[in-house]
Nucleic acid binder design. Structure first.
Lengths: 134, 134
DNA sequence: CAGCATCCGCCAAGATACTG
DNA sequence: CAGTATCTTGGCGGATGCTG
C-alpha cells in the first residue's frame, strides 16, 4: 500500500473492524499522541522546519514514518505544508493555528514528563525492588 | 512471555536495537501517551475504579492490554494498585499524586481534542476534496 | 532534496483457556 | 473477579530502490 493511501485509510494505530467505527474523537487523540506525532508537534512549535531538517531534529525516525505522520497531521489541519516548486525541491512544514493549540497541550505533557522524570525513575526502582523480593 | 515480564522488559511501543537505548524521557512520554494509557489516566481522574469496571468504562480494551497498561503505569508510580485479600478478589486502581498531575495534562489534550473536533473534520474534508481533484 | 512504492521482519495486540 | 499462560496474526515500522 502506498503511503498516500495510508493517510486516508489508516486510523493510525490499527483500525477497528468494519461496522465497528471508532469514535472520531479518539482518532484525533491518537494522531496527536502517536509516537512521532508528539515529537513533530513539539519541534514545529519552535519554528518551521524542512523535511530532512525535521528528520535530523527528531532523530531515529524513518523517512516513511515521518512522511506518514506529517501527512496525517496535515490532513487533520494541524500542519501546513509549503512545497516550493524549485529544483532541488524545498518543502517547509509549519503549524497551523489549530496545530499550535494542539502542540501547546502536547508540550505541556512533555514538560511535565521532563520535570518529573526523577520521581518516575525512583518509583520504578522501588517497584522492581519490591518485585524481586516477592 | 508472561505479562509480568513485559512490564519491566517492554519500552512500550517497540524497543530499540540493543545498545541503542532510547532516552528515558521519551519512554515515560510514550507510556502516558500510549493508546490505553491515555484513556486509563483520564478515567481514573474521575474516581478510583475496579478492574472490570475500568474495562467496561473504556470499552474495547482486551483484558491483557489493560493489565499491561496498568502495570506499566503502576511501575512508573502513576497508578496505585490496592488489592484486597478477599474472595472474590477485589482490586482498586487509583491515581497517585504524580499520576494525577500527568492525568491532568492528558485531560487537557483530550478536552482540546473534543472542542476542536469539528474543525479537524472540516480540514479533513477539504484535504480529501483537494486530493481527489488532483 | 523530498518524497513514493514495495517487500518483510517482528512485536504489539487480540483471542482463548486456565487459575487462585 | 482479577488476573496469568500460550498461541496466532495484523500491521507498524524499517530497508531499499526509484522518481521528479
Amino acid at each position: 500500500m502506498a503511503v498516500s493511501d495510508a493517510v486516508s485509510a489508516t486510523t493510525s494505530r490499527y483500525d477497528i473492524g468494519v461496522g465497528e467505527q471508532m469514535c472520531p474523537y479518539r482518532l484525533v487523540l491518537e494522531h496527536v499522541t502517536s509516537r512521532w506525532g508528539v515529537l513533530v508537534l513539539i519541534e514545529l512549535l519552535e519554528r518551521p522546519y524542512r523535511f530532512s531538517e525535521l528528520r535530523r531534529a527528531i532523530g531515529r525516525v524513518s523517512e516513511k514514518m515521518l512522511t506518514q505522520t506529517l501527512q496525517t497531521l496535515e490532513r487533520d489541519g494541524l500542519v501546513h505544508r509549503d512545497a516550493k516548486p524549485v529544483i532541488p525541491p524545498r518543502v517547509d512544514y509549519s503549524l497551523t493555528d489549530l496545530g499550535r493549540e494542539a502542540a501547546q497541550q502536547v508540550r505541556g505533557l512533555a514538560l511535565w514528563t521532563e520535570e518529573r522524570m526523577g520521581e518516575v525513575q525512583k518509583a520504578r526502582e522501588a517497584y522492581d525492588a519490591a518485585k524481586r523480593r516477592a
